[in-house]
């Protein structure tokens, strides 16, 4: 594993370079899609922590994005700088995650899925009905773009670089979490809960922590969404959106660190690519069904199988060439 680390670093550096030059010369819609992809990547990576690493199904990620987005929007509309408002949103998500997780994580599997689903729907109802706070179904508009010191992220390209920087930091933080003793505890939990418990892990506390951290990443994604779209309304955080984030995690590759980035690209960009045809959502649904039936490990699974085969055939060729 350690021999592969330089390779991973090189890949990450190349990827970052590509992302730095990719939007140059493109129209603002393309840049918007890239920002949207980065934002969903953060949300999906957070969910992946809960789901892929700690093995708990949560269908509430969109509501956490909502908590982050509404907090950021309301505070920045009241004149707070983004740098102060966003952490409040993220922290709030962490706390809400703890409060929701504490009772909900007593149940598991599909029950947890339904409790979180119910939470998401409740959040939606509150966002739609409490006009005084959230603007009701009209939502909140004219959300300002962040401004850090003299630098403003008003322009589309400037905002993209701002999003990229925040995403890179978030992903770095997640990378650290996954490799920390906590992260290893999450994995131990997923592989064999009884064994993890017998080895002295407080499984309930670890799961709760994974859930709260995953929720906080959802909040960060929301904190980016508010200034990105500059307009938020309850439908952006409905249950369907949570299912979309779940789809990203599973399609990308459950429990794989980079899977959600790939899954988010697929979910955000593929419908755009197919938009020309009348049947794009039908094609899309068929593709997802086929992927899940034929390759449940997702796109990363396909990539890994392909690489393994390539390595194998190369090794075979090498041994054949020797004598």
């Amino acid at each position: 594993m350690s021999s592969r680390r330089p390779l991973a670093l090189i890949v990450a550096a190349v990827l970052l370079a590509v992302l730095l030059i990719l939007p140059v010369g493109h129209g603002s819609y393309f840049i918007y899609l890239l920002c949207s992809w980065l934002m969903f990547t953060i949300a999906a990576m957070g969910l992946n922590l809960t789901l892929g690493y700690a093995g708990r199904i949560s269908l509430a990620q969109a509501s956490f994005m909502g908590v982050g987005a509404y907090t950021t929007a309301i505070l920045t509309l009241h004149g707070w700088p983004w740098l102060a408002a966003a952490p409040v949103g993220v922290l709030l998500c962490f706390v809400v995650g703890l409060l929701l997780g504490f009772p909900a994580l007593r149940v598991r599997g599909h029950f947890l899925a339904f409790v979180t689903l119910a939470f998401n729907t409740l959040f939606f109802l509150v966002a739609r009905n409490e006009d005084w706070l959230t603007g009701g179904s009209y939502g909140l508009s004219d959300i300002p773009r962040p401004r850090i010191g003299p630098i403003s992220a008003d322009g589309q390209l400037a905002f993209y670089y701002f999003t990229l920087a925040v995403s890179a930091l978030a992903i770095l933080a997640l990378w650290g979490i996954v490799r920390s003793p906590w992260g290893r505890a999450f994995k131990a939990l997923r592989e064999n809960e009884v064994r993890a418990e017998s080895l002295g892990l407080d499984t309930r506390r670890i799961t709760l922590l994974a859930f709260a951290i995953g929720s906080a990443f959802g909040g960060l994604a929301g904190a980016i969404e508010a200034p990105l779209v500059q307009y938020i309304e309850p439908n952006s955080f409905a249950v369907g959106e949570s299912l979309k984030v779940l789809l990203m995690v599973v399609v990308g590759g459950l429990g794989d660190f980079w899977g959600p980035a790939l899954g988010a690209a697929m979910v955000v960009l593929l419908p755009e690519a197919l938009r020309g045809t009348r049947y794009y959502l039908i094609v899309y649904a068929l593709f997802v069904i086929a992927l899940m039936v034929l390759k449940p490990t997702g796109l990363m699974g396909i990539g890994k199988t392909f690489l393994a085969r390539l390595a194998k055939s190369r090794a075979a060729a090498a041994t054949e060439a020797k004598p």
Partner: peptide
């Protein structure tokens, strides 16, 4: 959909049924 993913469908099966729901909805609409 279900049979090929048995006996241990798990989460991919859940996702597949979500995709089925999109498929049915969009087919009727289209």
């Amino acid at each position: 959909v279900v049979q090929p993913m048995m006996p241990d469908g798990g989460l991919p099966l859940v996702i597949a049924t979500m995709a089925v729901s999109i498929l049915l909805k969009e087919s009727v609409k289209t």
